[in-house]
Amino acid sequence: MLRLADIPMVETRYVEADDSMAAAVADLDSPVVLKADAEGLLHKTAGGGVLLNVHGADRIMEAFRTLRSRFGSALRGVTVQPMAEPGRELLVGVRSDPVFGPLVVFGLGGVDTDLIADRAARLAPLTAADADLLLDGLRSSKALWASGQLDRAAVRELLLKVSRLAELVPELAELDLNPVRVRSDGCVALDVRARFERPSATDPFLRHLRD
């Protein structure tokens, strides 16, 4: 779905807990990061579900065994991704409101998401002006963009693409792209979580209140 929406996402492979990790990563360049998909694990880093900078096939297999041992029967699988270049971590997402429809959410991401809770939201569909208001709507926005070292235009484009996706897929009740790693030359989503549900029937005229 993200590929069809042209949303930049790091290459991701998923290995179920009982599958062969060696076969899944045979042609993947290292270093890589392994992330556990385990029942009840919401914050992977804080919960010990992320192993960074793993080099070589032997170390990847060892890391896979470590996650199996750490989470036991709760482990459903492991995602494997190449290590991304350093950058600032942000959050871009969607929340569906039962009356007004989808809201696009923007804020600080990664470990800062719950620690600082600096977020802004606007109703979809976003205009270019709406996207700029989101980018400037955080308490930390001034410091975030002041250096000029982060690709603001790429994040702005990502917000517009996520807004369009929320319009085209009404079943998308929630979407979290967290973190989105932003550099001077673009941005890329490193993790995604989505929830789908059948939209309830609403008064069609409510949508026109936003036009």
Rank of each mutant, 00 (worst) to 15 (best):
S20C: 10
L172V: 04
R68K: 14
R13Y: 00
E11H: 08
L160M: 11
V15T: 00
L138M: 06
D211V: 07
E11V: 03
A154P: 10
V78Y: 02
V180M: 03
L123S: 02
S163E: 01
P31D: 09
K142A: 14
R183M: 13
D112W: 05
Q81W: 09
R122N: 08
G109T: 05
M83Q: 13
E174L: 07
A63P: 02
K35R: 02
D37W: 08
A189F: 07
L159E: 08
A166H: 05
V155A: 05
N178D: 15
L134F: 00
A173G: 03
V80T: 04
V180A: 04
A24N: 04
A74Y: 11
G40D: 07
T202A: 12
G186M: 09
D191L: 01
M21W: 07
D211C: 00
R70P: 09
L160C: 04
L108V: 08
V94R: 08
A143L: 15
A166E: 02
M21H: 01
G56C: 03
F196I: 12
P125S: 01
L34H: 06
S163Q: 07
T12L: 02
E89R: 05
G186Q: 08
A128M: 09
L138K: 01
H208M: 13
D132Q: 13
A57N: 12
A143K: 13
R193C: 05
A26V: 12
M9V: 15
A22R: 14
P8M: 12
E39S: 13
P8L: 11
L177A: 01
R70C: 09
D151P: 02
G186V: 09
P102F: 07
E197I: 08
F100S: 05
D130C: 02
P199A: 07
E171R: 06
A17T: 14
L108R: 00
S200Y: 10
S20D: 14
V50W: 09
A143T: 11
G56H: 12
V169W: 04
V33H: 02
G87M: 12
D29P: 11
L52T: 05
A154C: 10
E174M: 09
D118L: 08
A143G: 03
R210N: 14
F71S: 06
E16V: 14
V10Y: 06
R156S: 13
